[in-house]
Design a protein around this nucleic acid. Sequence first.
DNA 1: GTCTATAGAAGGATAGAC
DNA 2: GTCTATCCTTCTATAGAC
Lengths: 203, 203
Amino acid sequence: MIENEKQTDKKIFESATEVFVEKGMDGARMQDIASHAGINKALLHYYYRTKEQLFNAVFEKTVGEILQKFAPVFDENLSLEDKIKFFYREHITFLQKNPKLPLFLLNEVRRNPARIKKLLRSVNIMSLWETLEKQHGHELKEMNITRETLPQVISSVAALSVFPFVAKGILEAIFEKAGLNYDDYIEKRKVFAAEFLIRALKK
Amino acid sequence: MIENEKQTDKKIFESATEVFVEKGMDGARMQDIASHAGINKALLHYYYRTKEQLFNAVFEKTVGEILQKFAPVFDENLSLEDKIKFFYREHITFLQKNPKLPLFLLNEVRRNPARIKKLLRSVNIMSLWETLEKQHGHELKEMNITRETLPQVISSVAALSVFPFVAKGILEAIFEKAGLNYDDYIEKRKVFAAEFLIRALKK
DNA sequence: GTCTATAGAAGGATAGAC
DNA sequence: GTCTATCCTTCTATAGAC
């Protein structure tokens, strides 16, 4: 039954995603994935010959979805400042729903740097910069963003939204001691990060 | 020979640190650690009964050293602005020498959140804030840093220096496509992060 | 396509000689 | 303290029945 086949494949893939993201390649067990999908190990190997191949499928799909998430930033017809606000609102909301994704991705990229290089082949960094310059040339100058400082700026942008999720464990432990709530902190972060960044860029 | 015993223990501990930081608890192999130390597996178990215990020893020592690294920030007799510059210079230099530490720690805290809570017991968050207020009360007000915004500020401070190392794999891949050098980027980061933060805080 | 059973390898841990 | 040999469990992967 071809309908059934799709269902099983889908169930396997979703279970694998959940388990891999939770435990990482090293910590994940084929038995966990099988149980989670309500099937047995043999069937996993029937669909994806090895653990490695199943993992690769999950990894590539996940990265692909994330890269797509960033596309709207280049489309939206907004001022740079509004784009920044838009970005943090959307991005942090996405991470609230997928809090374990960042650490998972960063780990697995480190385990195998070749993987990410392969997936980035289709992305043209230079043309992204040119697009940005065309759309916001004047604002970029005002904010001291040049081809030279761009790496520092971009990584700072990402740092402000990604770090709170990557460091969730430590932050929660600290907040607990100070009587603060992690979820509140994240919710407030959507606005704080944008304002923080804008102040840092405005001169 | 007691001299020899210390030597072996030290060798084991150093090798374990290196392998655990590199591969994480799940990815590390006792055989790797033994080979790395030039001994055999049995001897590892003689000194530290289990892999778990060996790991715990490494983890606690490592976190302890990091916490100590932060202490000088509270001692130095400097303006807040100069403290920020001092912090990033020292902290990023430390991370240049231990680039894999952040991802290792964040992972293992996530794998077992109880671990970090235990280690934080000796740290009094509230008194740290009071110390800060005593030393820099006026400057804090000028920078809009209050008990409410402190978590946002502190996590941003950490984000700016830690993220570049946590995301090294991805950043390197992107930089490569843009013809940029990761090590240069890190070196420049020592100053950039400080200036970026100071601008964001000054209102 | 899906299952049970099992092979085969790897890894953590221990026994026992020196 | 240190080593060799080996046990035992866990895990990936395959064979073969249905």
